[in-house]
């Protein structure tokens, strides 16, 4: 049984080593490295032992052009009326420093809305998040700075949503990167364009990569329902002169996110007179005067500034008029 235990322990060690060696393989020999091979021989002739060396053959390693690009957004990024930031990570998997051309395309099959790309930036300060005014925006047609072998660069695509998008709609923005030196079919050689004056050879990636960044629309909607209740002077509900009409405006916020600056206004109908001091927002009475509270009312109409209203909330304004 001791033997079996030993075997198990050994196989675990081998497994760990295999993983380690695969990781070691990830790093390519740098472009410009010299591979130099020399053999030597020893032999005997008669009683003498002698040695001899071969000539040294030298091969210079050329530049391999390879790149990967992935989205760093594990969940869709919410986009509402303002801008949204998608985050990507580019890694130079070639063997020399290389810059990459970038193209952001908001038209991806299956998109429910098309975002507008405002700009592409890279993470100048290396903190992984977009800092407007700090991280460098790449002017259109400008490549990334040179990225060293096996190093990564965090990229940001800043987008805005269209006015017509509705809540929970999804969209993707494709970011594509290709090596400035050249890209195309793996094996394509760009003579003399490699690091250190050697050739540059397109690797398995085609020296280009792309990834989709996910967006989800966060749009709040307003539903407004107006109703009227009549109380006549005789205890009934007939719309006769002298009857009081209570108008009720109910704003229901749907979707997700919130509405900024929600304002409810209504005109006093012709043939009726506003009943002073009857304006209310939910259960709170509002003075008729234009003052510190949210509402005002006059002979011509009412005006209530609800302000920011979150999705899922309702806001009710009531006021009374008298039929002339």
């Amino acid at each position: 049984m001791t033997y079996a235990q030993t075997r198990i322990a050994t196989s675990t060690a081998v497994l760990a080593t295999l993983l380690a060696s695969q990781q070691a393989h990830a790093a390519n020999v740098a472009a410009g490295t010299l591979i130099q091979n020399t053999a030597s021989a020893s032999f005997t002739t008669g009683t003498a032992t002698r040695t001899v060396d071969s000539n040294t053959v030298t091969v210079k390693v050329d530049e391999l052009l390879d790149v990967t690009l992935v989205t760093k957004d594990s969940a869709p990024v919410s986009i509402s009326s303002g801008s949204a930031v998608l985050t990507y990570q580019l890694t130079n998997t070639g063997n020399g420093p290389e810059a990459f051309n970038l193209t952001a395309n908001p038209t991806v099959s299956g998109n429910q809305f098309a975002a507008t790309v405002t700009s592409i930036a890279y993470d100048s300060n290396g903190n992984g998040v977009y800092d407007a005014g700090v991280d460098t925006v790449l002017p259109s047609g400008t490549a990334t700075p040179s990225v060293d072998q096996d190093k990564s660069l965090t990229l940001f695509v800043i987008v805005t949503g269209p006015s017509g998008m509705t809540d929970a709609q999804t969209s993707k923005v494709n970011l594509a990167a290709s090596a400035v030196t050249g890209s195309g079919t793996p094996g394509t050689t760009y003579a003399g364009k490699g690091q250190g004056g050697g050739d540059a050879v397109v690797g398995a990636s085609g020296a280009s990569a792309n990834a989709n960044g996910p967006l989800v629309a966060s749009v709040a909607t307003v539903g407004l329902v107006k109703s009227a209740t009549i109380a006549d002077p005789f205890g009934g509900t007939q719309p006769v002169p002298g009857a009081t009409v209570t108008y009720k405006l109910v704003a229901t916020i749907g979707g997700s996110g919130s509405i900024a600056g929600l304002r409810l206004t209504d005109a006093i109908p012709t043939g009726t007179t506003y009943t002073a001091g009857t304006l209310k927002l939910d259960t709170t009475a509002l003075s008729d005067a234009a003052d510190a509270d949210a509402g005002k009312a006059s002979a011509s109409g009412i005006d209530v500034l609800v302000g920011t209203a979150a999705a899922g909330s309702t806001h009710t304004v009531t006021f009374n008029v008298t039929i002339q």
């Binding site: 591979i35 091979n37 020399t38 021989a41 020893s42 032999f43 002739t45």
Partner: peptide
């Protein structure tokens, strides 16, 4: 390899260090 001489050679051992790259 070649034995260019006119005598036999014995214990002929060729060692080739693998280039690091």
């Amino acid at each position: 390899y070649s034995n260019d001489g006119d005598k036999p050679v014995d214990n002929f051992v060729v060692t080739n260090p693998l280039p690091a790259p």
